Amino acid sequence: MSKSARAALDYPALRRKLTKARARGMPDFLEDRGRRLLDAWLATSASEARPLPRTLARLASGDAAREIGEITGAQIRAEQPEVLTNAACAAGCAFCCILLEGDGGLIGEAEATALHGALAPFAGQPDGRAWHAHACAALDPETRQCRAYEARPTVCRSFLSVDAEACRENAEGGDEDGSGMLGNHLDYLTVLALSREVMRGTALLHTYSLEALAQAACDGAPLDAALKAARHPTSELEETCEDIGNSPS
């Protein structure tokens, strides 16, 4: 980025870029909602005089998207929707952590870094794969509880089920109903996609495979190597958004 471009970049410029940004693949209503959420975050950052370099770093790492997803998740939980009051999730259930399809979920660099830091102390020890070949490495193989629970990404925090038996059947290759994601995960992905567009020409926002990152950390890879091993192609975020846009409402 040139010196003149850096000099011209400020909070009003970021917010102007956001008005033109697209979360390609996402339905219009989610894109509009994500734009409002990110614009409010930028407005707050400006009003509190947060240093611009720090704000840019948080956008590029996905930490802004993580914070926004955390805020909207707290709002959803405060309303106590029926799906939450009927949730069947319990410590050690872990069927949702058997990753038969996909790669465990798309995460940003801030979440990937936090996950690596939480799992690095367990490097070389038996992990979730000792319980089940397709289990997330973050699991303790004996208790089947997450060793990185406090650092777990938005995709994990948002998942829930009202039918534990359906989760067990799905972990064996079934296709039962009863599980899903809270809406704040959609907020996270949408804001992540918009953040990438806002940062275009300044920094590249990378995304990562949760499964691959957890495995690399548990196998003892240092952070840089784990990030490299788990990094998605740049098309992955847009394809994830398209999958959501094409799914039945």
Rank of each mutant, 00 (worst) to 15 (best):
K3V: 13
S4E: 15
L9N: 10
L9G: 07
Y11R: 04
Y11K: 00
Y11F: 09
P12C: 02
A13P: 05
R16T: 04
L18Q: 01
T19Y: 06
A21H: 01
G25P: 00
M26Y: 06
F29R: 10
R33W: 12
R33S: 02
G34S: 11
R36V: 02
L37M: 00
A40N: 05
A40M: 12
L42A: 05
S45K: 12
A46Y: 09
S47W: 13
A49K: 04
P51T: 10
P53W: 07
R54D: 14
L56C: 06
L56P: 06
L59V: 12
G69F: 01
G69R: 05
E70Q: 04
I71G: 10
G73K: 10
A74Q: 02
A74M: 01
Q75R: 07
Q80D: 14
T85I: 03
N86D: 08
A87H: 09
A88L: 13
C89P: 11
C89Q: 03
C89A: 08
L100D: 00
L100K: 12
G102D: 15
G105Y: 13
I107T: 13
G108L: 06
G108E: 04
E109V: 15
T113Y: 14
A118L: 12
A118K: 15
P121M: 03
Q125S: 13
D127F: 11
R129N: 07
A130M: 03
A130N: 09
H132T: 03
A133N: 11
H134A: 14
C136P: 05
L139C: 08
P141W: 04
T143N: 14
C146F: 02
A148V: 13
A148P: 12
A148S: 11
A148D: 09
P153K: 15
S158N: 05
L160T: 15
A164G: 15
E165Q: 11
A166H: 12
C167T: 00
G173I: 04
E176V: 06
D177K: 01
D177P: 14
D177I: 09
G178V: 01
M181W: 12
D187G: 01
L189E: 01
T190V: 07
T190N: 06
L194W: 02
S195R: 03
R200L: 07
A203W: 03
A203T: 01
L205H: 03
L205R: 06
H206L: 00
H206G: 03
Y208C: 04
Y208S: 02
E211T: 00
Q215M: 12
C218P: 03
P222R: 10
L223K: 08
D224W: 10
H232Y: 04
C241K: 08
